[in-house]
């Protein structure tokens, strides 16, 4: 069953210098229970895509085209009041980047979670606090800690509290934006274990945004690689690592060091990610691509299904090479 379908989504930011095309024609489909890793470098538009889905774009950002279907309802055109009451946090929740700063420092964490529940559901505060306690034990925090203030929790506990808050209204779909980036390696492993367990127990559909391929390899069932506002490849997690077809995916994987391999020289990708005010014509990766052909500078490659649920956008796939 398809939970989320993004059709040709375009999200631009207006600036004094013109439109920044942060998301420029993204197509994506997520099945129930899927755990998708959305991977890309900073500025590639992955957070913008997530904010567009949650309709939390900053004032200068806007969706200029495309559809976002959640259970077959297009949420782009929905009335804000309805979206706020019935969708945001109720059907889809967001674990914000940097849990350290995402909690309100002057309220107890339990009250913050209870607030999210009482706004969306017709329950008494006491009941909501009971739910908060359950959620805390679900993510592995002592339920008694709901009376703590954020500063009394460690970084890892705050991140878990954020995950608990996202689960508060039993959403169909969760977006976690760099949930482990600010954490140390052991706490990161603890947090990823919590996420893996929740997926097993609750079967949540989740989009995990990260720049860290190793986190995706360990947590997700599918992987989408984003570059300069476009998805360049989508596949299940094993195919992504064993048989990537897009040169950017290949380069990103070989640039990523593994502690399990022998010492080797690390490989970088030449050049820098493009400025999205003036992205390169044709394929946006072409200035950095080792396999560049004439057509790559002229025509934007189509995002095609090249195998069972394996999509990629590269001229090599259609024009030989």
């Amino acid at each position: 069953m398809t939970i989320l379908e993004v059709q040709d989504l375009k999200t631009y930011y207006s600036t004094l210098k013109g439109d920044v095309k942060a998301v420029d024609g993204v197509r994506l489909q997520m099945e129930k229970g899927e755990s998708l890793g959305l991977v890309g470098e900073s500025g590639c538009g992955k957070t913008t895509l997530a904010l567009a889905i949650m309709r939390l774009l900053p004032w200068n950002g806007r969706i200029v085209g495309g559809k976002i279907l959640l259970n077959d309802v297009d949420i782009v055109g929905l009335d804000e009041a309805i979206f706020d009451k019935d969708y945001r946090w109720k059907r889809m929740a967001y674990v914000f980047q940097g849990a350290m700063n995402a909690l309100n420092p002057v309220f107890k964490v339990g009250d913050q979670i209870a607030e999210a529940i009482t706004i969306h559901e017709d329950v008494a505060k006491r009941e909501a606090l009971d739910r908060a306690r359950e959620l805390f034990s679900l993510v592995g925090i002592d339920p008694g800690r709901i009376t703590s203030y954020p500063h009394e929790l460690s970084g890892g506990m705050k991140q878990r509290a954020m995950i608990a808050m996202a689960l508060a209204c039993n959403p169909d779909f969760i977006i976690a934006d760099e949930p482990t980036t600010a954490l140390d390696v052991i706490v990161q492993a603890q947090t990823l274990e919590v996420i893996n367990e929740l997926q097993k127990k609750l079967g949540i559909t989740m989009m995990l945004i990260t720049h860290d391929l190793s986190v995706v390899a360990q947590t997700c069932t599918t992987c989408a690689i984003m570059y300069a506002g476009n998805l360049v490849e989508y596949a299940d997690i094993d195919t992504t690592f064993s048989d990537p077809v897009h040169p950017y995916t290949q380069a990103l994987i070989s640039a990523f060091p593994s502690i399990k391999e022998d010492r080797r020289e690390l490989i970088s990708i030449s050049g820098v990610p493009p400025n999205l005010l003036n992205p390169p014509t044709g394929c946006r990766f072409n200035p950095r691509c080792p396999h560049r052909m004439d057509i790559c500078t002229k025509e934007k490659p189509e995002y095609l299904e090249i195998g069972d649920r394996h999509f990629a956008a590269c001229h090599l796939l259609t024009n030989g090479g």
């Binding site: 390696v185 274990e193 390899a217 360990q218 690592f241 399990k260």
Partner: peptide, 22 residues
């Protein structure tokens, strides 16, 4: 620490947190 480092290869074992707390 070594067990907690995630590996960019889904076929290898998962990173594990063998110690709790911070």
């Amino acid at each position: 620490l070594m067990m907690a480092v995630p590996v960019p290869d889904p076929t290898l074992g998962k990173a594990r947190a063998v110690i709790s707390g911070e």
